[in-house]
């Protein structure tokens, strides 16, 4: 083979490799792009009067269109702050948009309680706007807390961890029965959420009678491994503990249980694939 032909063959081979590199990389790149930015699914219960929660918005890193502002027309007391980056990934960014809830005031006639929000109005930096589904947010009017002299229990401490576990410790001040623990999202989560009540180190079956000075611990755990599609949802549960005295009077205590997704690249890729299938 002459030098000229050899050089030609090398140039052709390089051109083929460059072409293959472009085709392969664009194929992978496109496969990792969301069809459009959007909110994750949120299942949140929150109190009014200073309560807050976060909405998470996922967009491709290269998206020029970004969220400028968010609002809910029907709930003027709900104020959303500017988006802040929560997580930066290879192809996407997750933005956190904090919502602050002002006191909702007395319930007017015909108004539902809790207030349920399924979508928000979003204005984008390119001047466009759209209504976006966010899941379901339930905002409860805050009632007088069952604390102080009236409450049969006193709260000692509570803690939560990013691994989806949390605990609240209380002391029983006078005999009372723990009748139940509830949240609107327990049926949604099913086996993915587990709670347990212990008194003086023993697991309780509800309803359970508690004596004065007994210590009560309520712990929870989310079971949302990466392969569970629910793991990309945001959960904020107000676990309502209902106590009943012998007189029949009831008191509520609340424990917040939270799951915020911090996806791995593989988990985000699975989410992107699901979104692409859904929008196809």
């Amino acid at each position: 083979m002459s030098a000229r032909k050899k050089a030609g063959a090398v140039y052709l081979a390089v051109a083929a490799l460059v072409l293959a590199s472009w085709i392969g990389n664009i194929f992978v790149y496109r496969g990792n792009q969301l069809p459009a930015g959007g909110f994750l699914r949120h299942y949140i219960e929150a109190p009014d009067s200073g309560g807050s929660f976060n909405l998470l918005y996922v967009a491709n890193r290269q998206d020029n269109r970004q969220v400028a502002s968010v609002f809910v027309e029907d709930v003027p007391g709900l104020r959303f702050y500017q988006p802040a980056i929560q997580t930066e990934m290879r192809y996407q960014k997750i933005y956190r948009i904090m919502a602050q809830i002002d006191p909702l005031g007395e319930k007017s006639e015909g108004e539902q309680d809790p207030i349920v929000i399924h979508s928000v109005k979003v204005q984008y930096t390119d001047g466009t706007s759209s209504r976006e589904d966010i899941g379901e947010i339930r905002i409860f009017r805050q009632t007088a807390p069952s604390s102080g002299e009236k409450s049969p229990i006193s709260s000692l401490s509570s803690s939560s961890s990013s691994d989806g576990t949390g605990t609240a410790s209380m002391t029983v001040k006078r005999p009372v029965t723990l009748t139940g623990i509830s949240s609107a999202w327990l049926p949604v989560l099913g086996n993915a959420f587990e709670w347990q009540a212990n008194a003086s180190g023993k697991k309780l079956d509800l309803p359970a009678s508690l004596t004065a000075k007994q210590s009560l611990t309520v712990s929870y755990q989310f079971h949302l491994p990466e392969d569970n599609p629910l793991s990309m949802n945001v959960y904020e549960l107000m676990l309502k503990m209902t106590f009943q005295e012998d007189s029949g009077k009831t008191y509520d205590g609340t424990l917040i249980a939270e799951h915020v997704p911090y996806p791995s690249e593989a988990e985000m890729h699975a989410y992107v694939r699901a979104q692409r299938r859904e929008k196809a």
Partner: peptide, 14 residues
């Protein structure tokens, strides 16, 4: 130069 041309598209998925 050829190596750079082949590698450059990988920057999309760097």
């Amino acid at each position: 130069g050829a190596a750079m041309l082949i590698l450059l598209p990988f920057a999309l998925n760097a």
